[in-house]
């Protein structure tokens, strides 16, 4: 009797085709985190190929130069129109805020547009969905790729601000640990908000392309991006303090421009009223960012799961909705 190839034995692990020709249950066993990581990395690569525009000068110019720079210049001109250039610290305030908003816009639009693109344009959403890849991992992967685009835009805007707009900046004063912590937590929050928008876009029409920008515009109001929260009415300030983006922007400012203008604290601010302090410390920023980010992430995942169920129930995953 000849020996049986171990790979063909009925009890062979992995994906071996069983000698008795039946179904191999090994194929239905996933590999847990390995598969999730694989899905994520593949999605990042795919997103990078689709979104990355380093080799296309026009696309690079549009997404990494023109858009973020224009946003910053709008605010700089508004500032100069009123103050006549007399407040350079405010110029740093608006330039940093505007530059960081590139991350927000990229991250939020990345996930939402992935849903709309793959459903309406490429008609691939259903195939991604029914593949064994973890759908959330795929979405986050595509979102991360887009954040990379935003990162380049943010860097260029900051560089232009320092070189041409006289934003005072000293690289030796950067608080690197704070920067790293805040960036990690903040980007996770951005992706969470993007996931929330993606969940909404799963239910809406093709014309939802503008929703991420609309949402980013609204968050712009309450996140202390280009003006201190103290300017807002107190109830609106409370919304801002509950938003992880507010703490993220504040943390980046603390890290890059220690001692600079605070968006959260200051006279008339809700934070100062509640805490008595003129501005939050680095530790407070990290802790609150972690807490608000966690809540945002959990809420986003819950909304996404609910939207996912509704989409399956109503057959929305492969619809096209043009008008």
């Amino acid at each position: 009797m000849t020996a049986v190839d171990p790979a063909l034995r009925p009890d062979a692990p992995g994906l071996a085709s069983p000698a008795w020709g039946g179904f191999d249950p090994a194929r239905t066993r996933g590999r847990g985190w390995i598969d999730i990581r694989h899905s994520f990395v593949t999605a990042v690569r795919l997103g990078w190929k689709m979104e990355a525009n380093w080799t296309d000068p026009l696309l690079f110019f549009i997404y990494s130069v023109a858009k973020p720079l224009a946003s910053a210049l709008i605010l700089v001109v508004m500032l100069d129109v009123i103050s006549g250039g007399a407040k350079p610290e405010y110029r740093a305030f608006v330039v940093v805020g505007s530059a960081l908003w590139s991350f927000v816009l990229s991250g939020m639009s990345g996930l939402a547009w992935m849903i709309l693109d793959d459903r309406e344009r490429y008609r691939m959403l259903k195939y991604l969905y029914v593949s064994p890849s973890d759908f959330l991992a795929v979405m986050f992967g595509r979102g991360v790729a887009r954040i990379g685009v935003g990162a380049m835009g943010a860097s260029i805007t900051l560089a232009v601000g320092v070189v041409f707009l006289r934003v005072p900046f000293e690289i030796g004063r950067i608080d690197w640990p704070l920067l790293l912590a805040v960036m990690t937590l903040g980007l996770t929050s951005i992706l969470a908000i993007g996931l929330l928008l993606a969940a909404i876009c799963m239910q809406t029409r093709q014309e939802s392309w503008s929703y991420p920008e609309a949402a980013a515009g609204a968050l712009f109001l309450i996140s202390g991006v280009v003006f201190p929260l103290s300017v807002l009415p107190l109830p609106v300030q409370s919304l801002g303090l509950l938003t992880p983006l507010t703490w993220w922007v504040e943390g980046i400012r603390h890290a890059l421009f220690p001692g600079g203008v605070t968006a959260i604290g200051g006279p008339g601010s809700l934070y100062t009223r509640l805490s008595g302090a003129p501005s939050p410390t680095s530790g407070e920023i990290v802790v609150v960012l972690l807490a608000t980010g966690a809540v945002a992430t959990l809420a986003a995942v819950a909304v996404f799961r609910s939207s996912d169920r509704r989409a399956k129930d109503r057959g929305l995953l492969d619809q096209t909705t043009g008008s």
């Binding site: 619809q319 096209t320 909705t321 043009g322 008008s323």
Partner: peptide, 8 residues
């Protein structure tokens, strides 16, 4: 053909 407006 998959043309048309799904919402109509």
């Amino acid at each position: 053909e998959q043309s048309g407006y799904g919402i109509l």
